[in-house]
């Protein structure tokens, strides 16, 4: 897999989430699920939110965002509906399903455990 996307040059160092290997597996899914807890959002909104709330560190490109959303749809964790966007355009809104909520809880736990483990190694080694 080559590099598929990059942002305009800024003075800050940032991560572009386009290839799953850059992040821990499943992290993007987790982040999307978490984002959707706030309510229905369209794909662009999700990308914006991730960037804003990570202080521009995480820039999610379309090429990884939409496959991830399809994966979540397939697993039944989110559902999609067409609606009107803030500037009255047709946009596809994603909402969390009950199964998605459960998945979020368990993945979050798993993630915390994993991060804790990594931290431990980094501190002790």
């Amino acid at each position: 897999m080559g590099e598929r996307g990059w942002g305009p040059a800024r003075n800050k160092k940032k991560m572009t989430i386009n290839q799953p290997p850059d992040l821990l597996p499943g992290t993007l899914d987790l982040l999307i699920l978490k984002t959707l807890v706030r309510g229905a959002m369209h794909g662009y909104g999700i990308a914006q939110f991730l960037r804003a709330s990570s202080d521009d560190v995480l820039q999610v490109g379309e090429s990884s965002l939409y496959p991830a959303l399809q994966r979540l749809l397939l697993n039944g964790w989110v559902k999609a509906e067409w609606g009107a966007s803030e500037n009255n355009r047709r946009a596809r809104y994603y909402t969390l399903t009950p199964a998605g909520r459960k998945q979020l809880a368990s993945e979050r736990q798993e993630f915390t455990r994993l991060i804790g483990a990594i931290q431990k190694i980094l501190e002790n080694a």
């Binding site: 598929r4 996307g5 990059w6 942002g7 820039q59 490109g61 379309e62 090429s63 939409y66 496959p67």
Partner: peptide
């Protein structure tokens, strides 16, 4: 910024 749209769609 968005990357290769066709490829993303394939994915």
């Amino acid at each position: 910024e968005i990357g290769n749209v066709t490829l993303a769609r394939e994915d």
